[in-house]
Nucleic acid binder design. Structure first.
Lengths: 117, 117
DNA sequence: CGGGATCCGAAAGGATACTG
DNA sequence: CAGTATCCTTTCGGATCCCG
């Protein structure tokens, strides 16, 4: 009675909550966005995302591996090279991330540059 | 050269980053989702979202007001009633949030109940 | 190169009490 | 009802050092 959720949907959805807080976590969204464009190596991601530290990148990457959104591929050469790429579920995030990106271009796009920096 | 971003898009987008970390912040996604279904009063939101404290709800709501995604309406009665609702930009988040929700239903949906605990 | 382990200050978040 | 203020615990995140 007090709630009008009688239409079938509810105000709160655990799965949605898990998903949004997963991809919205500190640097995760940026990492996922970079990976949407193809596999990337650790240092490529590090270089592509401003202010992201190596420790945090490793941490986020491990979390994403745990959620099976990202997979890790090791190329043993003398110089070890590790590439990260989206799994099937990760790739399916593209639609959602693109929607967020479109909204961002329309609404947060404003010249909010923090100077020339 | 070293990057194949010559196709026009780049690995990092400040606006996207701002947006994803905004809506993905701790409880923000859940609050927005609840508000998509119509205006809600403070305590309604508080009751709808498990484990969310009043302090945090107030904080998130103020952040969203600052971003002009949510607007506040005060109904002065003897019992003060405050309702929150999405602004134009907030309503346009529906598409993005719905996409996230659809992904969640397919991938995180699994009966990941934390048991009876 | 691609991380893991540790240390420590900063920030987020919960609990409680109080106010209009 | 709808918050605010304070306290105090937990987590986050940066710096540094080390390893395969």
């Amino acid at each position: 009675m007090s709630e009008q959720s009688s239409d079938g949907s509810s105000d709160f959805c655990p799965r949605f909550h898990h998903a949004i807080e997963l991809i919205g976590k500190r640097w995760t969204g940026a990492v996922l966005r970079a990976l949407l464009r193809g596999p990337r190596r650790f240092n490529e991601l590090l270089g592509a995302i401003p202010d992201l530290s190596d420790r945090l990148l490793a941490e986020r990457l491990r979390e994403l591996e745990g959620e099976e959104i990202v997979s890790r591929h090791v190329d043993p050469g003398p110089p070890v090279r590790v590439a990260y790429e989206l799994t099937a579920s990760g790739k399916e995030l593209e639609t959602a991330l693109t929607c967020v990106g479109q909204w961002a271009e329309r609404w947060v796009a404003p010249p909010k540059r923090k100077r020339t920096a």
